[in-house]
């Protein structure tokens, strides 16, 4: 609270036009996907809980969020009212796209949520479980088409890891990238592809309605809301969690950074956020400050290794 007041006072003193309490959140993805959902959930809760008077969401889709990240990093410097949602996908995309802008060019604030990656087929598909799917891939990897998010994103990485764990050449997977979660979902529901891979949360409503069947989840433990086995349980050594974070603009003063971090902490501790996570099926994996910075550095290192392994990064 003190930090916020300090931030507001400072902002007023510098005659920064936007009140520190107003936020513009960039969702660097097409509408309907996970980041968009995170940004809009933040918007709803921050306004409802009175953390901010006005929150706007802006979608800048493309290439695993690097388009949005680049735009964010280049246009918002020093503006404490600007936030961007990002996540594990972005870490990979920065590498595969050889993006000139990386997470070092923004100010990561906190990890907010984590979600398992789900592998699912339409209800009409003959494939009943993950092992059948892997057998099909072993016989002819090209014949199994995967619909998922951006090339080099968490979905793509998970498929690569699964292939590797099952002894299939990861460069041989037939991965079809869709730009938004919505379009991939439509392709899976319409039986246009063999199998879909995306955040569990995007599949669960469909699974509940009986239009899709979840084959496996990517986390170490079973995911709430589905009894699908983990990849580990099915005999493939894959453990991926797709976390989502929020970052602020580059070039912030320590006071500004602290004010933003305080607002985010208030958000995470609010009852509205807890209810929101519950309804979306997201797990709270809040991590901020130095701990988050250290974790992020570790993830970036690990991801680079994984992407090289599966041939997506030279």
């Amino acid at each position: 609270m003190k930090h916020t007041l300090l931030g507001v006072a400072l902002a007023a003193a510098l005659a920064v036009p936007a009140v520190a309490n107003d936020y513009m959140i960039m969702a660097p993805a097409a509408p309907g996907g996970g980041w968009d959902g995170t940004a809009r959930a933040m918007q709803e809760v921050m306004q409802a809980e009175g953390i901010s008077a006005s929150v706007q969401v802006q979608n800048v889709p493309g290439a695993g969020g690097t388009v949005g990240l680049a735009q964010f990093a280049s246009t918002t410097s020093g503006d404490a009212s600007q936030l961007i949602v990002g996540g594990y996908v972005m870490v990979g995309a920065i590498l595969t796209n050889e993006s000139p802008v990386s997470l070092a060019d923004v100010t990561p604030i906190a990890r907010l949520t984590g979600e398992a990656v789900g592998i699912a087929v339409s209800a009409a598909s003959p494939i009943q479980n993950i092992n059948e799917l892997v057998e099909m891939m072993k016989a002819d990897p090209g014949s199994v088409s995967w619909a998922g998010g951006s090339a080099g994103g968490v979905d793509h990485i998970t498929v690569g890891l699964l292939a590797k764990a099952a002894g299939i050449d990861p460069t041989k997977i037939n991965y079809v990238a869709f730009s938004g979660g919505g379009e991939a979902l439509a392709a899976i529901l319409g039986n246009q592809v063999t199998v879909g891979i995306s955040g569990v949360g995007e599949f669960l409503p469909q699974v509940e309605a009986g239009t899709m069947r979840m084959l496996a989840v990517s986390t170490a433990e079973k995911w709430p809301g589905t009894d699908a086995p983990t990849l580990m349980e099915s005999g493939y050594d894959v453990n991926v969690q797709n976390w989502r974070m929020v970052a602020a603009a580059p070039g912030l003063s320590d006071e500004q950074k602290a004010a933003v971090a305080a607002d985010i902490e208030k958000l995470v501790n609010s009852a509205g956020w807890k209810a929101m996570l519950e309804s979306k099926g997201w797990a709270n994996t809040y991590l901020a400050g130095a701990d988050f910075d250290a974790q992020l550095a570790k993830e970036i290192e690990a991801t680079t290794a994984v992407l090289k392994d599966i041939g997506l990064v030279k």
Binding site: G62, A63, G64, A177
Partner: peptide
Amino acid sequence: VGIDGLTGQARLSFGVPQLLDG
């Protein structure tokens, strides 16, 4: 102009970040 949605390859953007968006 911009990043190719299927491979993440930048085309005709000449290193200008705003052009990556198309």
